[in-house]
Design a binder for these strands. Structure first.
Lengths: 186, 186
DNA sequence: TCCGTTGGCTAATGTGCGTAGCTTACACGC
DNA sequence: GCGTGTAAGCTACGCACATTAGCCAACGGA
């Protein structure tokens, strides 16, 4: 009985691969165990169960997106930075459509996910700084950016757009319109 | 052995009630059967199985929303009509948050759902008529409306907004910004 | 009243989650 | 090199759910 040498992160990695290949609905402990070359109950040595595994996957995905955010915002500011963030969001979802469906929509309500969610938030807040928005204005602006990014991404990743052509143009228009609606900044 | 007097529509109705009360993840044949006062296998006399039941629920929800659309657009035109449609969308989702999660995002790709999806589309196309958009402009505009409505609704119904106050204002701003971005019409 | 159809049932199978309890590989101390 | 404790694997089991098979009774029309 040689050991497989698993770890929590290895199990999460296998779960992400299962999702990428077969969709989020195919994430079962049986599938993950098979991919790890292990019997299903053995996974309980590394994760608390299916629910916890899904939470871990959520954390992983949130952090991956936060990494992309940080990279996209680096060296940019103002409208340029916001545009780069919005395109980084979409690029991640296009690269990993199934994985996006595993990203929790309300991370701040879950203690384990909150840290990863706040990482994303901070990058956006920094990018908005040049506008010197009042707190309420900042809340509305972040919400509107999120509505557009999430709305577009969830529709695109779920195949919700009938005609695939010109999606870039639609997304560009959405971003441009939102930026135009912000007050001018120096 | 008295009969329960079920029908396909009665089973779908029970499924919608289960979703409303316990969330879309709780939609199981066992739960629907219990609500109907029937053993689970008996449901197969009325629906083909869980997958088909979910499709039927999707059709029901799509049509309910299309009904709201038709009612909201009646007697209005132009920006007034678009605004009414957007608020009808959100009002439906606020009234039935769990049900919204059962609404398929890509109805046009499924023959059984397409008719209900097209009903919605036609109401929006009619409301946009005063702008006399060229076909590409119409596609982009409908997509943008959908991104905003679906993005906002899915975040709101999933508890994705941290602060509940002022959500009306955020949504109003999104609609107003989009309408402002359209060319003026006579 | 008779009989075919139809809507209900029980029984059984397969899959998946999760628990209990056993065994053994491996790292560490001597 | 040799115990030995821990932890990583295992099998066996119970439960929930979807689905199929096959039985039986209720209902409605001739």
């Amino acid at each position: 009985m040689p050991r497989a040498g698993l770890s929590t992160q290895a199990v999460v990695q296998a779960a992400v691969e299962v999702i990428d290949e077969h969709g989020v609905a195919a994430l079962t402990l049986a599938a993950v165990a098979a991919r790890c070359g292990v019997a299903a109950p053995s996974l309980y040595k590394h994760v608390g169960g299916l629910a916890e595994l899904k939470t871990q996957v959520g954390i992983r995905v949130l952090n991956e997106l936060a990494d992309r955010f940080a990279a996209a915002a680096m060296g940019r500011s103002g409208a340029d930075a916001i545009t780069a963030l919005m395109h980084a969001y979409r690029a991640y979802v296009v690269a990993h459509p199934a994985r996006y469906a595993a990203m929790p929509v309300d991370p701040l309500h879950h203690p384990e996910l909150a840290a990863a969610g706040i990482r994303q938030l901070e990058v956006i807040q920094a990018a908005l700084r040049p506008w010197r928005l009042d707190p309420a204005g900042q809340v509305h602006t972040i919400r509107k950016l999120r509505v557009i990014a999430h709305g577009f991404a969830s529709l695109e990743s779920a195949g919700g757009f009938g005609l695939p052509e010109d999606l870039d143009e639609t997304y560009r228009q959405l971003i441009a319109t939102l930026l135009d609606s912000l007050p001018a900044h120096p």
